[in-house]
Amino acid sequence: MIAFFTENSSEILLKTWEHFYISMIALLLGVVIAVPIGILLSKTKYLSKIVLSITSVLQTVPSLALLALMIPFFGVGKVPAIIALCIYSLLPILNNTFIGMRSVNENTKGAGIAMGMTPLQSIRLVELPLAIPVIMSGIRLSAVYVIAWATLASYIGAGGLGDFIFNGLNLYKAELIIGGAIIVTVLALLADFLLSKLERWVTPKGLRIEGGRL
């Protein structure tokens, strides 16, 4: 294993950057799409059931099949991989945004309205800050999923750490498979750690957990 890291150091850096780039762009697009939709769905019971059902169905499509479906429309490379990974990132973020917004106490929302806030101000200044911990949990979960699934992007020429794993399978070289898997795991853990720090930073101070207590 040491030989793998020393002999392929430059390629490891390149593939790790490709993997990170693909994953984070897909995750960012997922956040931009899912959070606003989740906020809107929290205000409409009927529509929320339909949309969440559709995203749940998309989540059941095998990731490799979804990547293959992208090829006729977007060809091969990073673009179809990012689109497919973005689709997979939607459900946890959308679901957690919906749950977080719906879990805000009605009396708290009512107090904001009573103070003269508009519905939009109530969402921005009251509901969204209180829902942030739940929303960030969905984003962290999606980040881990996306980084893991991005290994399959190698099949459609998107690069990333999946190249090591699938080359190892084709050449019967265990060190390539294990080395690639280790880096993917470390990358997922690192992303989760950094997002946990971001979660703490964006969470209102009164909602942060200190020493096991609020």
Rank of each mutant, 00 (worst) to 15 (best):
G138K: 05
V31D: 02
I135P: 04
L69D: 06
S63T: 15
A34Y: 05
V134A: 01
L41Q: 10
A114G: 15
V51Y: 13
V57S: 13
E127M: 13
L41T: 06
Y155G: 10
S42Q: 08
F20S: 14
G30D: 07
Q121D: 09
G38Y: 01
I132K: 02
I93F: 08
H19T: 09
T55R: 03
G77N: 11
K43D: 10
N107K: 14
M70N: 02
A150W: 06
I147S: 06
S42A: 15
S53A: 12
I147P: 07
A158H: 10
A148L: 07
F20C: 11
P72Q: 07
L27I: 07
A153F: 06
S48N: 09
L125M: 12
N95D: 01
L58K: 03
F74P: 07
I54R: 01
W149L: 14
L47K: 05
L67W: 04
V144I: 15
A81K: 13
I87R: 05
A143L: 04
V31P: 07
V32H: 00
S142R: 06
L90T: 05
S103C: 09
S142Y: 07
F74A: 13
F98M: 01
A114P: 11
T44F: 13
K43I: 01
Y46C: 01
I135D: 03
L125S: 12
P80A: 10
L29C: 15
T60C: 05
T108L: 15
P80W: 11
Y46F: 12
I82C: 08
G38S: 02
M70Y: 06
M24G: 01
I33H: 02
I71M: 15
L128I: 09
I135M: 14
T60Y: 05
L28W: 10
P36N: 10
